[in-house]
Structures are given as structure tokens and as C-alpha cells.
Design a protein around this nucleic acid. Structure first.
Lengths: 229, 229
DNA sequence: CGAGCGATTGAAAAGACTCAACCACCGTGG
DNA sequence: CCACGGTGGTTGAGTCTTTTCAATCGCTCG
């Protein structure tokens, strides 16, 4: 159980920061961020920002899990990405100076800090390493999304489920995958019923093990070959 | 017909530059680019770069049309984007320092300039406006791709075709859309046969007019309502 | 204990794909 | 100048995947 603290989380000792985009900050910069950011505890299924709203800064996940999604015409969610501890979310729309095209919501209780737009942009101006990191990150995500598009367009639901489970395995590692059937379906891009039937198949084929919401991958190799990679 | 020149195209008088990412360059920078870049004439269906190769710089389209695509497991292309005059292609992988995940190929004969990696990166270091432009561009494309993913996941082929035609209309404007059936199908993410049948439907419904490869949109409103926007 | 939501199953329908055949246009070479 | 071959475009029929709709189950929370 997560400590439900509204307490300040100190950047300099934040274990999630090292392998994050803010890993390159010098101690002066850290202190500055630390002094200007705010820290918040989020319950499960709480919203960070909504589609259509305007970015006022970036969110930095200290502990927890956040889904990034879009709502299609009939209100069905399409999950684009799941962010975990150490990731920053919400900076894309801030750069493009447009309202968010995606929404963000916690999947579990989380501690998440918030850095204001100006603070963050100033930091980017003065820190070339941070800047390069951000640009690199944006570029990487672009190519991830190209893969995502190609998968969606060309693969069967079964193949996409395998692919998605590989992604989720890395995200949840070493814990089992823990998502509602609906969220899982909305990530794979299929109907909930179809997803459930496929999970059953995977279970019968010995690829996964299921305990209510928790899914453990037993045969990673088979998953890879199914995903067609 | 395009002038098949291997002649140098002068940046300072390039009509495509004003509304491009390089619109912000001062005259010194322009001169520098102009002196260091190379210019090339590309035939139709000529490759700019392949999936898996390493970026050595960026391509700047003076005149012409380029498709950006990925090849799926069975070799079927998925078109991710179509770039036109004034656009730069190939810089994403350059930033992420990874091999290209996508390939680029001309759709028609084109004049395309090439700026070396070092020249370009140096320019970015010294020009904050260019830098902001690039970051903004990357962010915009990320949200475009989120839309693309949601469309792929949730819409029918018919709806996706409508959506794609709206995109293409803007790209080809004021010319009619001019793509092979296969390329069009590979953009929409469907089989060529299915695409042809839907085109026929659209034609019968008075939405489009078709002359061999050339497609003219007659009823934009209907297209919008079909696309579900 | 009952309401309600998430998960599951079944059956039917719809959408899209595959395969195979055929057409139409275009440039080439005889 | 015309027959030929090739490529891209088109059509039809059958099949399969996936969705939809409806019903049921099971658990949790008040």
C-alpha cells in the first residue's frame, strides 16, 4: 500500500528520477524544481488532465501508473500509452501550444509531482542535455507510434494482444499485469468480449496464467512468435 | 513537368522555405545551409532512405511528394504520412540516434535537398527558434499519430477512407488526389480490393469523382460527416 | 441481503479479406 | 502499325474474423 502522503517528495532523493528525463539535472536545478513543484497523491482512476484542456505544466510520476488515452466517437477509449514511475506525462501538448488531444488518468493510487510550464520551459532553455533528452524522447515515441499504427492496421487481434502483453510485461515487470479487461481491450483495440475469449485461448495454450485481474506470462517466447516479431 | 535539374536550388529564393521549419533562419544561416547542402532530382518511386539504415542528415522537399511508410511482417506497406513541398523528412530517427523505423520514397518526381547531420544539429544548437519549431513539430506529429491510432482501432474502413481523403485533400490541394489504389489502400490500412469497392460506393453517392488515378472530392461535408468528425 | 458492476459465454450478423479471374491501358519490339 | 506482355485496376464468390447483442454469473459494497 502506498503512503497516502500529501507530503513533499524530495527530488534529490527521488528514486524514480535517475532513469528519468530529469536525471541530467545539476543540483542547483534540482533544488529549483524541488522548491517550485507541487506534490500530489492521486487515488485510483483519478484524472490528471482531460482531452481539450490546456496544459499548464508537466506531471512527473514518482510512484504509480497512468494511462494515456483518447476517446473515439462513441466514447470508447483507445489507450495510447501506459506511463509508470519515472516517466513524465503531459509535455507534448505543452510544446505544441494546443489543447490536449489525449487524456491521462491513474490506473492505481499514485504519487505525482507537477512542474509549472514556465519553470519547465526555462529549464529546457538553459539545459542542453535536458533538451536533447526531450527531443530524443519525442522522436522515440514517434517511432513507437508508427509501429503501433502498423500493428493496428495489419495484425489480427490475436497478434495485437500478444504484442500488447509484451509491452505490458515490461511496464509491470516484475509484477504481473494488472488491468481491467476493458482497459486491456482498449489498449489492444478490440471489444471486451473478444479480448476475454482470446485470454482464455492463451490460458489454455499455457502462455499465461490468470488470477482475477492479474495476468502472469508463462511463455514469453511463444508470445514473441505470436506477435510476429 | 518538373525541371529535371541537378542544378543547385538556392535556399534564399526557395519558395517552399517560408512556411517550412527553416523559415526562421537568418540570412547568415541560410547562406551556410545553402553552401553545405546538396540538391538532387528524384524520379518517381525512388527511395530517400530505407528501414534499418542510419540517418546521415535530413531531407528538405523543394518540390514533390514523399511517402513515409513501414513494412509489416508480410511485406505489406503501411503508409504513415505523406510529405509535400516545404516539409522536412528524416529527422526523427536522427534525434533518437537509432536506425530508421520507417522508409521514405518519392510518389512523383521531386527536387529534394539534403542537409548533413552535423550541420543541422549545429544549427539547432545555435538557433532557439528553429529548435522550438522542431519540438513543436514533433509534438504535433505525436498527437496526429494518436488520432491515427484511435481511428485505426475504432473506425470502419469506410470511415477511415473518408478520414484519409480529407487528409489527402489538404495535402494535394488544389490538385486532385493522385495515388495508386495500392498506396491509397496502404494509407487507409485495408486490402486493395476493399478500397476499390468503397471508392465505387463513394462515386455512386456523388461524394467523389474519379478519373483513372485522379480523385476529386465533390462533397466535402459528406466526407466530414462520414469520417465522424 | 440486494444492487450493481465487471467478467463471461453463446449465437447470430456484419464487415473485411482472400483468392481467382478478368479487364484495360501502355509501352515495347517485331 | 499491330500484336504482345505486363502492370494496375476491377469484379465476384466464398470464408473467416471480429463485433454485437443478450443473457448469465459472481463478487463486492453498502
Amino acid at each position: 500500500m502506498l503512503e497516502k502522503s500529501h507530503k513533499h517528495i524530495t527530488c534529490s532523493t527521488c528514486s524514480s528520477r535517475n532513469n528519468s528525463l530529469l536525471g541530467s539535472l545539476c543540483s542547483d536545478e534540482i533544488d529549483h524544481v524541488n522548491a517550485h513543484k507541487s506534490c500530489n497523491y492521486f487515488k485510483k482512476q483519478q484524472s490528471l488532465f482531460l482531452e481539450g484542456s490546456f496544459p499548464r505544466g508537466v506531471f512527473c510520476i514518482n510512484q504509480g501508473m497512468v494511462k494515456i488515452f483518447q476517446r473515439g466517437d462513441e466514447g470508447k477509449e483507445q489507450i495510447i500509452h501506459i506511463a509508470k514511475s519515472g516517466e513524465m506525462v503531459g509535455f507534448r501538448a505543452m510544446f505544441s501550444e494546443e489543447p490536449y488531444k489525449v487524456a491521462a488518468e491513474t490506473l492505481e493510487e499514485s504519487n505525482i509531482c507537477f512542474i509549472g510550464k514556465d519553470d519547465f520551459l526555462n529549464m529546457m532553455d538553459s539545459n542542453p542535455v535536458l533538451r536533447k533528452g526531450i527531443i530524443k524522447e519525442l522522436s522515440k515515441e514517434l517511432s513507437d507510434r508508427a509501429d503501433f499504427i502498423t500493428n493496428m492496421a495489419q495484425k489480427s487481434v490475436r497478434e495485437r494482444l500478444a504484442f500488447t502483453m509484451i509491452l505490458l510485461m515490461d511496464i509491470y515487470n516484475p509484477e504481473p499485469i494488472n488491468l481491467s479487461r476493458e482497459d486491456l481491450a482498449n489498449f489492444v483495440g478490440t471489444a471486451t468480449e473478444t479480448l476475454i475469449r482470446l485470454l482464455k485461448d492463451f490460458k489454455e495454450e499455457g502462455i499465461i496464467e490468470v488470477h482475477t485481474r492479474k495476468i502472469t506470462v508463462l511463455n514469453k517466447e511463444k508470445l514473441f512468435s505470436l506477435a510476429g516479431k
